[in-house]
């Protein structure tokens, strides 16, 4: 069993220098700083791409694109607006979801719903054999949600579905899905102890 990776869950505040400072160095063209950034974020970037895309080849392609974008756009990172990790993960998640959506645009609606129903993003998290501490915590927090909150959050984040699609799939009104996504995520925030 692989030892648990030291992921900078809080933006690397325990390490020196932190991800935010490293990104500032990267913005000035510092390749050595970028290597450290790579080591901090690559597994998370690849992981989220893989979870959303479910295809190692595409996930790798997206991860590469995202990491290059981190290099290219480091000057656009503003620490006042959030942690370095959330900046990187936002890029990664958006790219992966964009890829899924462009691929699915060609699939007709019924097919898509069938595929959607076949996808159980939460179960994957629960059944993952090798669990890190962070995964355990995530699972515990997800278990603290109502079923509808949990499904709304996991279909949206890990499945890449829009709230309209989630409403369609779960056969609940749009307003309900929006509300469940918000209160579900708020509960996750409080459970995970996200710093604000």
């Amino acid at each position: 069993m692989r030892p648990r990776r030291a992921l900078p869950l809080d933006g690397g505040r325990h390490d020196r220098p932190g991800l935010e400072e490293l990104l500032r160095q990267v913005a000035r063209g510092d390749r050595a700083a970028f290597e450290q950034v790579y080591d901090m974020v690559a597994a998370a970037v690849y992981g989220v791409a893989l979870r959303v895309l479910r295809d190692p080849a595409q996930a790798e392609e997206i991860a590469q694109e995202v990491l290059i974008e981190v290099w290219r756009g480091a000057a656009r990172f503003e620490a006042s607006r959030g942690s370095g990790m959330s900046w990187v993960m936002t890029i990664a998640h958006h790219r992966a979801v964009d890829r899924v959506r462009s691929a699915q645009a060609s699939i007709d609606r019924e097919d898509r719903v069938a595929r959607l129903e076949a996808r159980r993003p939460y179960d994957d998290v629960a059944e993952s054999v090798e669990t890190t501490l962070e995964q355990e915590r995530l699972r515990r927090c997800l278990n603290g949600l109502t079923e509808l909150q949990r499904e709304s959050v996991t279909y949206a984040y890990y499945g890449g579905y829009t709230y309209r699609e989630v409403a369609e799939l779960l056969k609940v009104p749009l307003a309900t899905v929006k509300t469940r996504m918000r209160d579900g995520l708020i509960r996750m925030r409080d459970c995970l102890g996200v710093e604000r």
């Binding site: 998370a44 993960m89 925030r189 996200v194």
Partner: peptide, 20 residues
């Protein structure tokens, strides 16, 4: 919105996988 963005990022970090 900022807190929720950080939370969403944590959902992603939790599924980290060793890249190829």
């Amino acid at each position: 919105a900022r807190g929720l963005r950080e939370t969403a990022a944590r959902l992603g970090v939790a599924v980290a996988q060793e890249p190829p």
